[in-house]
Simulated assay, not measured.
Amino acid sequence: MTPAESFLDCSAALLDRVRAQLPAIQQTADLFAKTILARQMVHVFGSGHSRILVEEMWPRYGSFPGFNPIVELSLTFHNLVVGANGQRQAMFLENVSGLASRILRNFDLKAGDSALVVSSSGCNVVPVEMSEEFQRRGVKVVALISKDHAEASTSRHPAGKKLQDFADIILDTGAPIGDAMVKIEGLETPVAPGSTIGGCLIVNAVKAEVAQRLTQAGQPPKVLTAGVLVGAQKATEIFEAAYDEHARRIAPYYQGLGA
Protein backbone atom coordinates (compact mmCIF):
# COMPACT_ATOMS: atom_id res chain seq x y z
CA MET A 1 0.00 0.00 0.00
CA THR A 2 1.34 3.43 -0.90
CA PRO A 3 1.44 6.25 1.66
CA ALA A 4 -1.34 8.02 -0.24
CA GLU A 5 -3.54 4.92 -0.13
CA SER A 6 -2.84 4.55 3.58
CA PHE A 7 -3.85 8.15 4.19
CA LEU A 8 -7.07 7.73 2.21
CA ASP A 9 -7.95 4.55 4.11
CA CYS A 10 -7.35 6.30 7.42
CA SER A 11 -9.46 9.22 6.25
CA ALA A 12 -12.31 6.89 5.28
CA ALA A 13 -12.20 5.47 8.80
CA LEU A 14 -12.66 8.98 10.17
CA LEU A 15 -15.98 9.17 8.34
CA ASP A 16 -17.17 6.13 10.29
CA ARG A 17 -16.01 7.72 13.55
CA VAL A 18 -18.02 10.84 12.75
CA ARG A 19 -21.08 8.88 11.65
CA ALA A 20 -21.11 7.11 15.02
CA GLN A 21 -21.60 10.51 16.66
CA LEU A 22 -24.82 11.42 14.87
CA PRO A 23 -26.83 11.70 18.13
CA ALA A 24 -24.33 14.27 19.48
CA ILE A 25 -24.30 16.06 16.12
CA GLN A 26 -28.10 16.30 16.25
CA GLN A 27 -27.94 17.58 19.81
CA THR A 28 -25.40 20.20 18.77
CA ALA A 29 -27.58 21.28 15.85
CA ASP A 30 -30.58 21.63 18.18
CA LEU A 31 -28.55 23.90 20.45
CA PHE A 32 -27.10 26.05 17.68
CA ALA A 33 -30.42 26.37 15.82
CA LYS A 34 -32.15 27.49 19.02
CA THR A 35 -29.52 30.20 19.47
CA ILE A 36 -29.76 31.43 15.88
CA LEU A 37 -33.56 31.39 15.86
CA ALA A 38 -33.43 33.64 18.93
CA ARG A 39 -31.41 36.14 16.80
CA GLN A 40 -28.31 35.42 18.88
CA MET A 41 -24.86 34.14 18.04
CA VAL A 42 -23.00 30.85 18.13
CA HIS A 43 -19.44 31.86 19.04
CA VAL A 44 -16.75 29.75 17.37
CA PHE A 45 -13.16 29.72 18.63
CA GLY A 46 -9.99 27.83 17.83
CA SER A 47 -6.32 28.58 18.31
CA GLY A 48 -3.44 27.24 16.27
CA HIS A 49 -4.52 25.20 13.26
CA SER A 50 -7.98 24.81 14.80
CA ARG A 51 -8.60 28.20 13.19
CA ILE A 52 -9.26 26.23 9.99
CA LEU A 53 -12.47 24.80 11.44
CA VAL A 54 -13.62 28.20 12.69
CA GLU A 55 -13.45 29.55 9.14
CA GLU A 56 -15.01 26.35 7.81
CA MET A 57 -18.12 27.16 9.83
CA TRP A 58 -18.47 30.77 8.61
CA PRO A 59 -17.97 32.63 6.30
CA ARG A 60 -17.47 30.46 3.23
CA TYR A 61 -19.56 29.00 0.43
CA GLY A 62 -22.35 26.86 1.78
CA SER A 63 -22.43 28.65 5.13
CA PHE A 64 -24.74 31.25 6.63
CA PRO A 65 -25.01 33.95 9.34
CA GLY A 66 -25.49 33.10 12.98
CA PHE A 67 -21.91 32.20 13.81
CA ASN A 68 -19.33 34.55 15.33
CA PRO A 69 -15.84 33.44 14.23
CA ILE A 70 -13.35 34.47 16.91
CA VAL A 71 -9.88 34.24 15.36
CA GLU A 72 -6.93 35.83 17.15
CA LEU A 73 -4.11 36.46 14.68
CA SER A 74 -1.53 36.27 17.47
CA LEU A 75 -2.56 32.65 18.01
CA THR A 76 -3.09 31.59 14.41
CA PHE A 77 -0.81 33.55 12.04
CA HIS A 78 1.44 30.72 10.92
CA ASN A 79 2.67 31.60 7.46
CA LEU A 80 5.82 33.49 8.53
CA VAL A 81 6.91 30.51 10.68
CA VAL A 82 9.92 32.32 12.21
CA GLY A 83 10.82 35.94 12.91
CA ALA A 84 8.23 38.54 13.89
CA ASN A 85 4.77 36.96 14.30
CA GLY A 86 6.38 33.53 14.13
CA GLN A 87 5.17 30.16 15.23
CA ARG A 88 7.18 30.15 18.47
CA GLN A 89 5.30 33.20 19.71
CA ALA A 90 1.91 31.78 18.71
CA MET A 91 2.58 28.51 20.55
CA PHE A 92 3.75 30.45 23.61
CA LEU A 93 0.70 32.71 23.65
CA GLU A 94 -1.60 29.70 23.29
CA ASN A 95 -0.63 28.79 26.84
CA VAL A 96 -0.82 32.20 28.50
CA SER A 97 -3.38 32.08 31.28
CA GLY A 98 -5.80 35.02 31.24
CA LEU A 99 -5.68 35.68 27.51
CA ALA A 100 -9.05 34.00 26.93
CA SER A 101 -10.83 36.32 29.35
CA ARG A 102 -9.23 39.34 27.65
CA ILE A 103 -10.50 38.11 24.28
CA LEU A 104 -14.03 37.64 25.58
CA ARG A 105 -13.92 41.06 27.27
CA ASN A 106 -14.67 42.33 23.75
CA PHE A 107 -18.11 40.70 23.67
CA ASP A 108 -21.25 41.31 25.69
CA LEU A 109 -22.32 37.67 25.80
CA LYS A 110 -26.04 36.91 26.11
CA ALA A 111 -28.01 34.27 27.96
CA GLY A 112 -29.01 31.80 25.26
CA ASP A 113 -25.76 32.12 23.31
CA SER A 114 -23.86 28.95 22.51
CA ALA A 115 -20.27 28.24 21.51
CA LEU A 116 -18.09 25.80 19.61
CA VAL A 117 -14.51 25.60 20.90
CA VAL A 118 -12.03 23.60 18.83
CA SER A 119 -8.78 22.09 20.08
CA SER A 120 -7.34 18.81 18.90
CA SER A 121 -5.42 18.18 22.12
CA GLY A 122 -7.91 19.92 24.40
CA CYS A 123 -4.95 20.75 26.61
CA ASN A 124 -3.67 24.21 25.66
CA VAL A 125 -4.54 26.94 28.13
CA VAL A 126 -6.35 29.46 25.94
CA PRO A 127 -9.04 27.18 24.47
CA VAL A 128 -9.57 25.53 27.86
CA GLU A 129 -9.99 28.89 29.60
CA MET A 130 -12.16 30.08 26.71
CA SER A 131 -14.63 27.27 27.41
CA GLU A 132 -14.38 27.87 31.14
CA GLU A 133 -15.16 31.56 30.64
CA PHE A 134 -18.03 30.84 28.27
CA GLN A 135 -19.64 28.54 30.81
CA ARG A 136 -19.03 31.00 33.63
CA ARG A 137 -20.98 33.56 31.64
CA GLY A 138 -23.89 31.22 30.95
CA VAL A 139 -22.99 30.11 27.43
CA LYS A 140 -23.41 26.42 26.58
CA VAL A 141 -20.24 24.96 25.05
CA VAL A 142 -19.66 22.29 22.43
CA ALA A 143 -16.06 21.05 22.48
CA LEU A 144 -14.55 19.62 19.31
CA ILE A 145 -11.46 17.59 20.22
CA SER A 146 -9.52 14.56 19.01
CA LYS A 147 -10.60 12.35 21.88
CA ASP A 148 -7.81 9.76 21.79
CA HIS A 149 -5.17 12.47 21.46
CA ALA A 150 -6.75 14.64 24.17
CA GLU A 151 -7.02 11.80 26.68
CA ALA A 152 -3.37 10.86 26.13
CA SER A 153 -2.11 14.46 26.38
CA THR A 154 -1.06 16.40 29.47
CA SER A 155 -2.98 19.59 30.19
CA ARG A 156 -1.12 22.87 30.51
CA HIS A 157 -4.04 24.45 32.36
CA PRO A 158 -3.03 25.71 35.83
CA ALA A 159 -5.50 23.30 37.45
CA GLY A 160 -4.83 20.46 35.03
CA LYS A 161 -8.23 20.83 33.35
CA LYS A 162 -8.91 19.91 29.74
CA LEU A 163 -11.34 21.35 27.22
CA GLN A 164 -13.76 18.48 27.72
CA ASP A 165 -14.03 19.43 31.42
CA PHE A 166 -15.85 22.63 30.42
CA ALA A 167 -18.15 21.27 27.71
CA ASP A 168 -21.86 20.54 27.60
CA ILE A 169 -21.42 18.43 24.45
CA ILE A 170 -18.22 16.73 23.24
CA LEU A 171 -17.52 15.93 19.58
CA ASP A 172 -14.55 13.88 18.37
CA THR A 173 -12.60 14.36 15.12
CA GLY A 174 -11.52 10.72 15.36
CA ALA A 175 -7.87 11.54 14.74
CA PRO A 176 -5.32 9.28 16.46
CA ILE A 177 -2.86 10.11 19.24
CA GLY A 178 -0.38 12.54 17.74
CA ASP A 179 -2.85 13.42 14.94
CA ALA A 180 -0.62 12.17 12.08
CA MET A 181 -1.94 9.00 10.48
CA VAL A 182 0.63 7.59 8.04
CA LYS A 183 3.77 5.67 8.96
CA ILE A 184 6.63 5.73 6.47
CA GLU A 185 9.27 2.98 6.44
CA GLY A 186 12.55 4.41 7.69
CA LEU A 187 10.88 7.52 9.15
CA GLU A 188 10.66 7.63 12.92
CA THR A 189 7.39 9.54 13.26
CA PRO A 190 4.13 9.50 11.26
CA VAL A 191 2.96 12.19 8.83
CA ALA A 192 -0.33 13.52 7.44
CA PRO A 193 -2.70 14.65 10.23
CA GLY A 194 -6.35 13.71 10.38
CA SER A 195 -7.97 16.16 12.81
CA THR A 196 -8.80 18.71 10.11
CA ILE A 197 -10.54 16.07 8.01
CA GLY A 198 -12.60 14.72 10.89
CA GLY A 199 -13.29 18.24 12.13
CA CYS A 200 -14.50 19.43 8.73
CA LEU A 201 -16.83 16.45 8.49
CA ILE A 202 -18.32 17.28 11.88
CA VAL A 203 -18.77 21.04 11.45
CA ASN A 204 -20.40 20.63 8.05
CA ALA A 205 -22.68 17.86 9.32
CA VAL A 206 -23.73 20.22 12.11
CA LYS A 207 -24.10 23.10 9.64
CA ALA A 208 -26.40 21.06 7.38
CA GLU A 209 -28.58 20.02 10.32
CA VAL A 210 -28.82 23.61 11.54
CA ALA A 211 -29.84 24.79 8.05
CA GLN A 212 -32.67 22.26 8.01
CA ARG A 213 -33.92 23.37 11.42
CA LEU A 214 -33.86 27.05 10.49
CA THR A 215 -35.70 26.37 7.24
CA GLN A 216 -38.34 24.21 8.92
CA ALA A 217 -38.86 26.99 11.47
CA GLY A 218 -39.66 29.44 8.69
CA GLN A 219 -36.33 31.27 8.87
CA PRO A 220 -34.32 29.84 5.94
CA PRO A 221 -30.69 31.00 6.20
CA LYS A 222 -28.96 33.27 3.70
CA VAL A 223 -26.45 30.76 2.35
CA LEU A 224 -23.33 32.08 0.62
CA THR A 225 -23.72 30.60 -2.86
CA ALA A 226 -21.54 30.56 -5.97
CA GLY A 227 -22.57 32.54 -9.00
CA VAL A 228 -22.23 29.42 -11.16
CA LEU A 229 -25.31 28.07 -9.34
CA VAL A 230 -27.55 31.13 -9.07
CA GLY A 231 -25.98 33.68 -11.41
CA ALA A 232 -23.51 36.42 -10.58
CA GLN A 233 -26.09 39.06 -9.67
CA LYS A 234 -28.06 36.77 -7.35
CA ALA A 235 -24.86 35.53 -5.70
CA THR A 236 -23.77 39.11 -5.02
CA GLU A 237 -27.17 39.93 -3.54
CA ILE A 238 -26.98 36.92 -1.23
CA PHE A 239 -23.45 37.78 -0.09
CA GLU A 240 -24.41 41.38 0.67
CA ALA A 241 -27.57 40.31 2.52
CA ALA A 242 -25.71 37.66 4.52
CA TYR A 243 -22.94 40.06 5.55
CA ASP A 244 -25.53 42.69 6.51
CA GLU A 245 -27.34 40.12 8.65
CA HIS A 246 -24.09 39.18 10.33
CA ALA A 247 -23.47 42.86 11.12
CA ARG A 248 -26.91 43.24 12.65
CA ARG A 249 -26.52 40.09 14.71
CA ILE A 250 -23.07 40.99 16.05
CA ALA A 251 -23.81 44.65 16.80
CA PRO A 252 -25.59 44.03 20.15
CA TYR A 253 -22.50 42.17 21.40
CA TYR A 254 -20.58 45.43 21.33
CA GLN A 255 -23.29 47.88 22.39
CA GLY A 256 -23.52 46.78 26.01
CA LEU A 257 -19.81 46.58 26.77
CA GLY A 258 -18.85 48.28 30.03
CA ALA A 259 -22.43 49.21 30.82
Rank of each mutant, 00 (worst) to 15 (best):
L31H: 14
E237Y: 03
T225G: 15
V118C: 13
T2E: 07
T76P: 01
A205P: 06
V44K: 13
E188S: 04
A152E: 10
F77K: 03
K34P: 00
V139C: 08
A242F: 04
M181N: 04
P190F: 07
A84R: 14
L93V: 03
S6I: 13
D108I: 02
R102N: 03
Q40T: 04
I177W: 00
Y61N: 00
A24G: 00
A24S: 14
S50Y: 03
G48H: 09
S131M: 13
K140R: 15
L37D: 05
H149T: 09
A226F: 10
A143V: 01
K110V: 14
R137C: 13
D168N: 15
E72N: 05
I70C: 03
A247K: 07
D172T: 11
V125R: 12
S47C: 11
G122N: 14
E132F: 05
A90E: 04
I184W: 05
V128Y: 11
Y243M: 15
D179L: 00
N204I: 02
G48C: 07
R137K: 15
M130V: 07
F239Q: 09
S120R: 06
I197E: 00
V230R: 03
A226N: 08
E56W: 09
R105I: 09
T76V: 07
H49L: 03
L75Q: 01
S195R: 02
L201E: 07
A24Q: 09
E5C: 03
A241E: 14
T189P: 00
D9L: 13
T2Y: 01
V54Y: 01
V191Q: 05
G186R: 09
V125W: 12
G112V: 11
A29E: 14
T215P: 05
